[in-house]
Design a binder for these strands. Structure first.
Lengths: 217, 217
DNA sequence: ATCATGTATTTTGTATACAAATAGAAAGTA
DNA sequence: TACTTTCTATTTGTATACAAAATACATGAT
């Protein structure tokens, strides 16, 4: 197999977008804080043009606010924003779950179940960060099984914007246990290709997520 | 009431974005066609910088494809794209309908019913364009009643991207009649604040939309 | 005649310079 | 002292110039 012979000729624009996106998601650029253009372009070693174009992309993604003539800030999510986003995310993942049961191959499902099992291993060892990353991947991949591109894009966008908050929120052991229980229910439904039940389980999982994160806002 | 005292000091960026967005939605810039930067900036009377930033915004919205070093094109939707987008849109509007029944004020609902009645007048007169515009507004406003900002944004995005196709698709009289019947069902459920039923009606309406447009792709 | 290779032209990407707007500080007025 | 008002420093917005890449074209070899 000749994988990734492709040289990474990613445009400067794309590189800046993902770099700044990461800085925001990681919390290095704090929510609500001003984005110092001069400072950042210097640190990134790029000029203003690609940087500003990147800001426009991030603004369209909802991570950044650009106010004319008064610069850009990292978008700060209110509790209401997070609630709304989870409300939509839950509903989108419900659809993704239903479609996945209809459209995924047996192998797709087996791979996802495998990922789930590896997550459970991490949970048993209480390895929070690896678990967290696998969890993100689980949701992304399950959504991908819907074979619906716009659905994937919207799910990815919401997941990215909520990334920080969800990590912070999952600190309490009992909350973590609850999330694990949700996942068990989801995987059980997936194995049986029970679309409505999987959809329901996913919607419930996201609803529970709100309960788990709301206090840390 | 002191509405719109605000002078339109919209940034050049925003103006270019909405102008080019309109050109795409109206079909003046044809799907799949190359976007001639030099030509358009000359016609719009702006320089490259705000224009290119606008393209980045439109690319993030999914209306434009920017391929590094080989310019931009108007995104062309395949039948599969349209199907996927309608699948998501239907599901989002289902949620919007459910939430609207829970959260809208009586006056909100009355206003929407009024809009519906005016639409029906247009239908009786077979005024296709005004009907079409009111229809767009109906869906937007019903979604707004969900009081969920991200939901509104996503609905607006999908609606914009599908605008052209839906207009083309609604030509046959029997299709139009079908759409009207769907709307009657939706409004009936809305009047009774029957969320699940309204949600279902909206999902069905969008599913029917696919049937009505699929042949003209 | 066709294909490959090299060159010219066009188009795109990036950097920078200049203009305009904003926010902050200092001075003046009530 | 509080409140304007004006001026200045800084930041942002826009235009343009230059560099790099891609495409189109022409030339020559097979």
């Amino acid at each position: 197999m000749v994988s990734s012979l492709e040289i990474e000729n990613r445009s400067l624009h794309d590189q800046v977008v993902s770099k700044v996106r990461d800085l925001i998601i990681e919390g290095i650029l704090e929510p609500g804080s001003r984005i110092d253009e001069a400072d950042l372009i210097q640190k990134l070693g790029v000029s203003r043009t690609p940087f500003r174009e990147a800001l426009r992309t991030l603004a369209a993604e909802g991570l950044v606010i650009v106010r004319p003539s008064r610069g850009s800030t990292v978008r700060k999510l209110t509790a209401a924003d997070v609630f709304s986003m989870l409300e939509v995310l839950g509903h989108l993942e419900q659809l993704a779950g239903e479609l996945a049961c209809q459209r995924a191959s047996d192998q797709d499902i087996a791979e996802l179940v495998d990922l789930h099992n590896r997550m459970m291993t991490r949970y048993a060892a209480r390895d929070r960060m690896p678990y967290y990353k696998m969890n993100q991947e689980f949701h992304s991949r399950l959504t991908a099984l819907s074979q619906n591109q716009p659905l994937q894009e919207m799910q990815a966008n919401l997941q990215a914007r909520l990334k920080r908050i969800r990590y912070i929120g999952n600190e309490k052991p009992e909350y973590w246990a609850g999330a694990v229980a949700d996942h068990e229910a989801m995987v059980a439904a997936l194995k049986e290709r029970d679309g409505p039940r999987l959809g329901q389980a996913m919607a419930t999982h996201i609803k529970n997520t709100w309960e788990r994160v709301k206090d840390s806002l």
